[in-house]
Design a protein around this nucleic acid. Sequence first.
RNA 1: UCCUCAGUAGCUCAGCUGGUUAGAGCACAUGACUGUUAAUCAUGGGGUCCCUGGUUCGAGCCCAGGCUGGGGAGCCA
Length: 480
Amino acid sequence: MLKPRLSVKEILHQDPDPKQVHTIMGWVRTFRNNQFISLSDGSGPDVLQVVLELGKFDENLLKRITTGACLKISGKLVASPAKGQSVELLADAVEVLGDCDAEKYPLQPKKHSLEFLREIGHLRMRTQTFGAIFRLRNTAAFAIHKFFQEKGFLYIHTPIITASDAEGAGEMFRVTTLDLNHVPKNEAGEVDYSKDFFHRSANLTVSGQLEGELAAMAFSKIYTFGPTFRAENSNTTRHLAEFWMIEPEMAFYDLEDNMNLAEEMLKYIIGECIKQNDKDLDFLNKRWEEEERQKPAAERYPMNLLQRLQFVLEHPFERLTYTQAIEILQNSNYNKKKKFKYPVDRWGIDLQSEHERYLVEKHFQKPVILTDYPKDIKAFYMRLNEDGKTVRAMDILFPGIGEIVGGSQREERYEYLLQRMREMNIPEKELWWYLDTRRFGTCPHSGFGLGFERLVQFITGMGNIRDVIPFPRFPGHVEF
RNA sequence: UCCUCAGUAGCUCAGCUGGUUAGAGCACAUGACUGUUAAUCAUGGGGUCCCUGGUUCGAGCCCAGGCUGGGGAGCCA
């Protein structure tokens, strides 16, 4: 009788039944003793032990069962007599769907460095570590949709290709079909974009926020979740040229509503990951603890990965203004003993990573939300406070990551917005459609941007952002 | 882009003060063993010591330039 095929994850939850024949497909992790196959199909962190009775199978077949080979196995699920697994598959038939030359296959049943695995990005997903990471990434992505859908937010697709390059969120990638060897020029010697595909210059988006605001003026609560592109020459463990961003935008939300939403969302996503991927997290936690053990005691984090996630879930984020933060930093022993590379000497300076880290990791030892930054170090669209000096901005800072969320209450007053744009040389003509929202039924509204990969970094404990996206893009690198 | 550390076998690394034939573990191959959990034991093959140039009687080791990778900074999410 034809049975529906089970995944490894599913069959591991079945009760042993000596009568029922299952067919399982997957890839060999290890083959021990010419008898025991660890088979993985990526459906979960656990592998299925397949037992080949000695002498039952042809030797030439056994030689083809190598690390990485793809197999189709039918057999019966039995209780395992040995420790390590509760059930195992007693094989009746083994078919090699795809051979894997053990001498040439780069993945071995041993620990590899992340740097090496980065070079074989097409294969690294088959490892336990990257299996866990990308299953968690999947859970987090789905949790984001669940969170917003349950709250009545509309998922809107903002454009990937955009005409505006006015936002100042970062350097942009050009989108063109012009022949780069024969670029048409106008009389002034400039590139003649009227000959280009869109009849004007176009770029990849650096943010869906401005378009998101348009949608919020129609649907009240919206979110975007899509790829974003920044052509910055950033070479760090926290930056990518192509990354995914979540950007909710809410009409009638003030800054406090905005912060509440962001904090609730982060906790919801983390909670879902703990609930649904506990074994993946256990695995990454062990990995994390091993790495921590290598570090000198002074640099070790007081909590392990699981404790840290739990801690974030259980404690309210610390909220304070930029001005309060500056006071704390100025009065800190760190500052007095001149341990900061960039001394905190006056109100108005932009906070450096070391300052953010001090607040989050030393002073408060929990996530921090900083609000009301000086207007001069923030974007043009943030709402000006009564003091005329600060804006209704909020950044959420996470331990080990730094800024994970950046948001604000938006400047909804036409005159104020226009003035800020002029002060900051934002071309108002190009953003006529954005200004229109303030002319036609404007309203108080707020929103934020969450860097998805940074959140996945926090959840998985991975130190380098290039390890939490399947195919990272960064300066000099677009492989696969 | 800047600062910093590194590059030796497929992988992870050792290699003394510059000295003759460059090592280990894992992986791989062959054999033995057979209820293993990254199996174990034995044997074996495997090297452009990142590249170019220089110093030296002699360079994996010293010097200069470059390439590649890691970490940190800036920009930010």
